[in-house]
Design a protein around this nucleic acid. Structure first.
Length: 385
DNA sequence: CGGTTTTGACCCGCGC
DNA sequence: GCGCGGGTCAAAACCG
């Protein structure tokens, strides 16, 4: 059959093809195949080299980050012994405490499977396990283990959610107010609300492509700001509690947009949504730790942008300013480029919220850290349509 | 026709 | 307790 195809391809107009012609063509094809095979081998070799490089780079990065994170975790544990939440679980990458606590996590997950009764304490753990994202790295067995556990826990969570989905709209409302409050507010202790991550995006891209589908559910003009604020809900999953607010920073067309994310996705994210997730996760977990020493982690994820911390209206907030690249072309990004301002009512570790999205456009000169994703599911600000 | 947007009404937390 | 204002709901309109 192949022979026939080759023959018909090479001699489309020839009426008669001899046996020897066929053999010559076959030999040529075989030679080509051999060439392709060799190229394939070369590519394989190249791939393995790249993988090795990547691995060593990852090790290097983890070695750089680890001592700082360990220090911050130690500080946090000392100052917040009451909270039984392992913040590191939310990071899902190169985090030392993950491997250390795998047994504990396993226990928690099993408890969740066997126990439908949800109490406040286990809810905290559940929230910590209910990652909205994960970094997929086959080289990291700890991460892999965490992922499995995460999916296990999410499965239980989703089953509960499915059951509740059957309820009528009014019931859903009550479910929202009860169940989602827990998720959204991260079981915060009184006085502190769910953590948020704000992204200030350049004007040409008001709707950061976070890899998710968003449904607008409201718009409001705040008294303090004449510009309307749009409210969006993640529509990738019927029960996904993640919401975002988009507000223009100024009246002129060149002004940037502030996008505020809240909550944790209860569904697997598309690939493009996971790229910056690690960075924002770090940001979110910093909100819990409130540790300035950990801020160095963010410079790894957002090396060219200003990152600031604040607490507004009891919402611990990390702001990533993509409009003002913190970038010097002659310098490798350093940790000192981060602006860190922590307020007196700093965030607490019990706020176990993580946020996930991927940036679509930044003014950083390279997409090494922030992957540019196709604008597949854009959200729009009303008044701009 | 199903999904999304618009928009007025409603809810609820917070400050006084 | 009351009023204010941010956030959410939900019906109608819109759109592909």
């Amino acid at each position: 059959m192949i022979k026939e195809k080759i023959s018909s391809c090479v001699h489309p107009s020839d009426g008669v093809i001899t046996e020897s012609d066929k053999e010559v063509e076959l030999d040529a094809t075989k030679a080509k195949l051999e060439k392709v095979r060799e190229e394939n081998e070369k590519l394989k070799l190249l791939l393995s080299t790249v993988l090795t490089d990547y691995k060593s780079l990852q090790m290097h990065v983890s070695n750089v980050i680890r001592p700082q994170h360990e220090a911050s975790m130690e500080l946090d544990v000392n100052s917040h012994d009451d909270f039984g939440v392992d913040i590191s679980l939310r990071l899902g990458r190169s985090d030392v405490n993950v491997s250390k606590n795998v047994d504990e996590i396993d226990k928690i997950s099993l408890e969740r499977v066997s126990d439908d009764e949800i109490n406040e304490g286990s809810d905290k753990k559940r929230s910590a396990l209910g990652l909205g994202f994960r970094i997929q790295s086959c080289e990291d067995p700890c991460t892999d283990e965490t992922m499995k556990l995460d999916y296990l826990s999410k499965d239980v969570k989703n089953k509960n959610a499915e059951n509740k989905c059957i309820c009528l709209r009014k019931d859903v409302k009550s479910v929202r107010s009860d169940d989602q409050k827990e998720v959204l507010e991260g079981h915060a202790q009184p006085g502190l609300k769910k953590s948020r991550v704000c992204v200030k995006a350049p004007c040409e891209d008001p709707s950061i492509n976070d890899g998710c589908q968003w449904r607008k559910y409201g718009q409001k003009t705040a008294k303090t700001n004449p510009l309307p604020r749009a409210y969006y809900r993640c529509s990738m999953s019927s029960n996904c509690p993640v919401r975002k607010q988009v507000q223009r920073c100024g009246e002129d067309e060149t002004s940037a947009y502030m996008t505020t994310y809240e909550g944790t996705h209860d569904h697997p994210l598309p690939m493009e949504a996971t790229h910056m997730a690690a960075g924002t996760s770090a940001a979110a977990s910093l909100l819990q730790s409130g540790s300035s020493s950990s801020s160095a982690n963010l410079s790894y994820f957002f090396p060219y942008h200003n990152v600031s911390f604040s607490t507004t209206n009891s919402h611990p907030t990390v702001t990533l300013d993509l409009t003002r690249p913190n970038y010097d072309p002659d310098q490798i990004p350093t940790h000192s480029s981060l602006s860190f301002s922590s307020s007196s009512d700093r965030p607490s570790p019990s706020n176990s919220q993580t946020l996930s999205f991927s940036g679509s456009r930044s003014q950083a000169p390279s997409s090494k850290y922030l992957q540019i994703a196709p604008l597949s599911h854009q959200t729009k600000l009303s008044g701009q349509q």
